[in-house]
């Protein structure tokens, strides 16, 4: 009798837990969905060809976000161009050459910690280090982003270097290949997926960054080529979103930018999954 009521109690408890969990899943899903739909509904009607293809003008009082789009592209290119060789090089050194494993452990730990620091701190340091010397410009922003993304690229490359089987290295050394040849021909091709994953993650972070860039790259909307653009202050899309919403109260434009960023983020995640699937398939061959 006692047992029976106990098991009954237990059963109703199970059912209750299940309902609660279903509720939290439902709430989470609908929140995400609401956010997505809300931003898209508010944003998409405001996206016009004119908005995408012009720069803002005080004369006509029209707003265009072409400079911000270009600035974003420039800063992504400049950052990746600098951070890739540095990060991949450091990763190769740490996994393939460094013999002091304790030191490697410390550096890995430091990198892990660095990637968790709030970006506004990077902004502050970047401002003192770069903007105060070279002026507020996209390049100063890019350099700040390099520091910020270096740990990411380094860690993802390192992780994928570690998945290259030791037997490949042994095979190559056994044929009389020198260290650099082994690294270049056998190890590096095996870490392409890590590098690409790192790049995609970094692009995502750069797109989403505002705090660090407000300090260092400024928020001008001038239309420039890549060279002049990097030397001049400029807003990326995310910074422009902040400026239009907060300083100018242009919520239509802000939502248009938000919708664009949202679509880009979804796209980047999609590409990241595709890349990972592709390499997983190639590896299991």
């Amino acid at each position: 009798m006692l047992n029976r009521s106990l098991s009954k109690k237990r059963k109703s408890f199970e059912v209750l837990m299940k309902i609660l969990m279903l509720l939290s899943v439902g709430l989470t899903a609908s929140l995400v969905l609401f956010l997505l739909v809300y931003v898209l509904v508010q944003g998409i009607p405001n996206i016009t060809w004119e908005l995408l293809s012009t720069k803002p003008s005080y004369l006509t009082e029209k707003i265009g976000i072409l400079p911000d789009i270009l600035n974003t592209v420039y800063i992504v290119i400049a950052t990746l161009f600098l951070v890739l060789p540095l990060g991949v090089g450091a990763a190769i050194y740490l996994t393939e050459y460094a013999s002091n494993k304790k030191m490697v452990g410390i550096i890995e730990y430091a990198a892990e910690t660095l990637s968790g620091i709030p970006s506004i701190i990077y902004g502050l340091v970047g401002m003192l280090l770069f903007s105060n010397n070279m002026g507020t410009c996209l390049m100063a922003g890019a350099l700040t982003l390099v520091i910020m993304n270096l740990p990411t690229i380094m860690r993802t490359t390192q992780e994928s270097l570690k998945t290259v089987p030791q037997s490949y290295r042994e095979g190559a050394f056994g044929l009389g290949a020198g260290k650099w040849r082994v690294v270049r021909t056998v190890v590096l091709p095996g870490c392409v997926d890590g590098v690409i994953t790192g790049c995609i993650l970094s692009v995502g972070r750069i797109l989403g960054e505002s705090a660090a860039l407000l300090f260092t790259a400024g928020f001008a909307h001038a239309l420039n080529g890549i060279i002049d653009g990097l030397a001049a202050p400029g807003a990326t899309l995310t910074v422009a979103l902040y400026v239009y919403a907060k300083e100018q109260g242009e919520f239509g434009v802000a939502f248009a930018i938000a919708a664009i960023l949202m679509v880009l983020t979804v796209l980047i995640n999609f590409v990241a999954t595709l890349v990972q699937k592709y390499f997983a398939k190639r590896r299991s061959l």
């Binding site: 089987p165 037997s167 490949y168 042994e170 095979g171 190559a172 056994g174 056998v186 091709p189 095996g190 061959l285």
Partner: peptide, 9 residues
């Protein structure tokens, strides 16, 4: 080697 280890090429 004990386990065949051709390169992935």
């Amino acid at each position: 080697f004990q386990k065949p280890n051709p390169f992935p090429m």
